[in-house]
Amino acid sequence: MKPAEEYILKQPEPYKSILLHLQILIESSFPNTDLQFKWKIPFYYLDDKPFCYLNPSKKKGYVDVAFWVSAHLTKYNELLISENRKVVKSLRYKSIDDINEEVLLTVLEEAHQLKDKGFYKRN
């Protein structure tokens, strides 16, 4: 089992269920992603470049799906949270019911297209 998968399975509820649901959505929609464990959180890579990461904040009660290329994202920008972060923006979920799959998949697809246009740097 990969360290990132082990990390997800060890999370308390509701974080574990949210993370598992997000993992299924991301991996089924983008089968070429590589789930890694970087900076102590699950991190998705595409072609050796960072794509997005999953960050559970137990202290604040949510899970972020965060994007490096947030400055270039245009779809559903009103739903992306920057919260004192200069580069990264995220979609935030407190429960599985909060996950709007259309919004998530649209933002992920746009991030994927930006990768193809060269907006990502190697990490």
Rank of each mutant, 00 (worst) to 15 (best):
M1S: 13
K2R: 08
A4P: 06
A4W: 02
E5C: 04
Y7R: 01
I8H: 02
Q11R: 11
Q11T: 09
P12S: 12
Y15F: 15
Y15A: 06
Y15C: 09
S17C: 07
I18D: 07
I18K: 02
I18Y: 08
I18V: 11
L19Y: 04
L22P: 03
Q23L: 08
E27I: 05
S28D: 09
S29V: 06
P31R: 00
N32L: 02
T33V: 13
T33N: 00
T33P: 01
T33R: 00
F37S: 02
K38P: 03
K38Y: 06
K38L: 06
K40W: 00
I41L: 09
I41S: 03
I41G: 00
I41E: 03
I41A: 03
P42F: 04
P42H: 06
Y44T: 08
Y44F: 09
Y44N: 02
L46H: 05
K49M: 12
P50Y: 03
P50F: 05
F51S: 00
F51Q: 00
C52V: 05
L54M: 15
L54V: 06
K58L: 15
K59N: 13
K59E: 13
K60N: 14
K60L: 13
Y62D: 11
V63S: 12
D64Y: 09
D64K: 11
D64V: 08
V65I: 14
S70W: 06
H72W: 03
T74F: 05
T74I: 14
K75R: 13
K75E: 15
K75V: 15
K75L: 15
Y76T: 14
N77L: 14
E78L: 08
L79R: 14
S82Q: 14
S82F: 14
E83D: 15
E83C: 10
N84E: 15
R85N: 15
K86L: 14
V87D: 01
V87P: 02
S90K: 12
L91W: 11
K94F: 07
K94E: 12
I96M: 10
D97W: 10
D98N: 10
I99A: 08
N100R: 11
E101Q: 09
V103P: 10
L104P: 06
T106W: 04
V107G: 00
E109R: 07
E109N: 11
Q113S: 07
Q113N: 09
Q113P: 00
L114N: 00
K115G: 07
K115C: 00
K117D: 10
K117R: 12
K117E: 12
K117Q: 13
G118W: 06
Y120D: 02
K121Y: 03
K121T: 09
K121W: 02
N123A: 05
